[in-house]
Design a protein around this nucleic acid. Structure first.
Lengths: 204, 204
DNA sequence: GAATAAGTGGACAGCGTGTCCATATGACCG
DNA sequence: CGGTCATATGGACACGCTGTCCACTTATTC
């Protein structure tokens, strides 16, 4: 498993995000430079075309400096996304219903879809950059969504949830979202479609 | 739009597959060599890592010979898949129910899922190789699946099908199928999950 | 069998990768 | 304050793949 991000990635638990050993000030300055520059670069061009060289150039640092912390551009995008994903996880675990506990599984699934489409809409570049290819499935965040969806399925009384988890998460792949937007489907329409699906699937 | 495959790709119509202008015998021989070698190469290693050089070496031809007909490895995989996809399209248009016309939309959607999982199971390497990244959405085959699913949704009385088409096709992304298999979910379980979903979604 | 068109593959320049290492720069301590 | 050490930095290198060019070869046509 590659080290992704520098401050510990959003996993099952919500961590503090403080680095273990203190970081030299020049390192911290460069980390900030790199992340700020990467944000720009991922927004400016197709996220899957972004190279380490692009980011290094934009940040004004050498490539080897990037490699010190991040093995590839996807890790840098993941680091930028980390904070947002951590917030969403927090809301799913302890937030108000219907996102947090306390609502019916179908409402919670719909709310999850709503939050995810919102995240995708705001940070599509970064998600595209972070989840290149099958890397998506290896992410800590993906593991979290899996556990969440699975528990909703079980709570709704679905007897064989295992064949459905990836199916329900598949529409949240950034390429799928991007393609829908490209075809003129709005975020609202996408969320409505997913809400309708949530209710048809999990209503008693 | 890149030229993909040599014999005209499976699009909306089922074409004959005969080349327009006659091909020189050495060209035909090399085409066969290339396709046979590519089949091996895609099966042998991660399809997304296959390079033009790999295929050229395996086929015993120069790289420029490959570039003459195919712009990238994905096109070669697409050419290999073309025949299978064309057969499935034929069955969807004119085959027996429930795959072909004559069954209820929910049964037809389930049958479509069954046929697609079968295709994915048999030729996963090739689909992974052909649909790298967002290339998936640009293929003629994907356009066909779109039209098919959309017509089933309309027939089932869904008022806003546009927000659902990509959602229903998303689970058929080769990466998703691969991930499910990697997690120990069998083809049958996947097909059952999709069948259950088809019925929940499209039953009156 | 000559003329013509099509096919072939060696070679080249360009780009991104991942790593190494000499140098520079904070951090710590006496 | 200054010396020492660990860490951080970035230029440089070798490698692999890409995409194209072009001189040469081979099949087809007349």
């Amino acid at each position: 498993m590659a080290i992704r991000g520098g401050q510990g990635e959003a996993l099952l638990a919500v961590t503090t995000g403080q680095p273990e050993v203190k970081e030299r000030v020049d390192a911290a300055r460069n980390r900030a430079r790199v992340l700020a520059a990467a944000e720009q670069v991922f927004a400016a061009k197709d996220a899957r075309q972004v190279t380490m060289e692009d980011i290094a150039r934009a940040a004004g640092v050498g490539r080897a400096t990037l490699y010190r912390r991040y093995p590839d551009p996807a890790s840098i995008a993941a680091a930028l996304l980390d904070e947002h994903e951590r917030q969403l996880q927090e809301q799913l675990l302890r937030g108000e219903p219907p996102l947090g506990p306390g609502a019916t599984p179908s409402d919670r699934l719909a709310a999850f879809y709503g939050a995810m489409t919102s995240l995708l809409d705001r940070h599509l570049h970064l998600v595209l950059g972070a989840e290149v290819g099958s890397a998506r499935f290896g992410t800590g965040a993906y593991g979290f969504w899996r556990v969440h969806v699975r528990s909703l399925l079980v709570e709704a009384g679905v007897t064989e949830p295992n064949g459905l988890i990836e199916v329900l998460l598949a529409p949240l792949a950034p390429e799928v979202y991007q393609e829908q937007r490209r075809r003129g489907v709005s975020r609202e329409q996408i969320a409505e479609g997913l809400t309708w699906m949530s209710h048809r699937l999990l209503m008693p």
